[in-house]
Simulated assay, not measured.
Amino acid sequence: MLKKILVCSALLLVAFVVMMTVTGQTEFTREDEVLLATSPAEVWTVLSAVEQWPQWWPGFEAAKVTPALQPGARLDLSLKGDPGSKPAIVETVVPGRKLSWVRDGILGSTTHTSLRLSGATGGTVFVMQSRIRGPQAFLARITSQERFSGYHQAVLKSLQLRLGAAPDTLRLPAGDA
């Protein structure tokens, strides 16, 4: 019996090592956008007020950037249902145009979030992109396409409402990545 348990354990360990090796460079990306009826400067004001994200961004209980919103800064995000989250690191800050950060995912994966703004006729195109690299991406491809899209749509709607859009004017073009 002990021999069978050891053999099964060894086989599981080998399978885990193979899975980690095969999926180590796997990538999952989801991108969605919305046309906001405000200027990029107005949108940027809301995005750059990190400590206020929990007031409008679904899923955030707390958000704090240290020392300031700049590349390399620490971004502490307390997510509902995930109280022990490691901090993210701000990757890119281009005022009025782009904000992105990276954080550790599960099984050695990394998760990247990017928010991009561009001027458009009638307002601002806001693009939200989530990208995962590593074994977690393999799992996300199988189980999370619709969940990521639904979450993005909830964030986009909430941002529109934060910017003062009336619910009947919400426009959410579906983006596919």
Rank of each mutant, 00 (worst) to 15 (best):
A73L: 04
A73N: 09
A73K: 01
A73G: 01
R74E: 13
L75V: 04
L75T: 01
D76Y: 09
D76A: 14
L77W: 08
S78G: 05
S78D: 06
S78W: 08
L79C: 04
L79A: 08
K80M: 13
K80V: 15
D82P: 10
D82S: 00
D82T: 11
P83N: 09
P83D: 01
G84F: 10
G84T: 08
S85Y: 04
S85K: 03
K86G: 13
K86I: 02
K86V: 02
P87L: 00
A88T: 02
A88P: 10
I89S: 00
I89C: 00
V90Q: 07
T92K: 00
T92Y: 11
T92E: 03
V93T: 14
V93G: 13
V94M: 10
V94D: 01
V94Q: 03
V94T: 10
P95R: 08
R97P: 02
K98D: 03
L99G: 03
L99D: 09
S100R: 05
S100G: 08
W101D: 13
W101F: 15
V102R: 12
V102D: 07
V102W: 04
V102P: 05
R103C: 08
R103P: 09
R103W: 09
D104N: 03
D104Y: 07
G105P: 07
I106G: 00
I106A: 12
I106K: 12
I106Y: 10
I106D: 03
L107E: 14
L107H: 12
L107N: 13
L107G: 12
G108S: 01
S109K: 03
T110F: 02
T110Q: 09
T111V: 13
H112I: 11
H112C: 06
H112Q: 13
H112M: 09
H112P: 02
H112R: 14
H112S: 03
T113R: 15
T113G: 12
S114I: 15
S114G: 01
L115R: 13
L115S: 14
L117I: 13
L117M: 05
L117P: 01
L117G: 00
S118D: 06
S118W: 00
G119Y: 08
G119W: 02
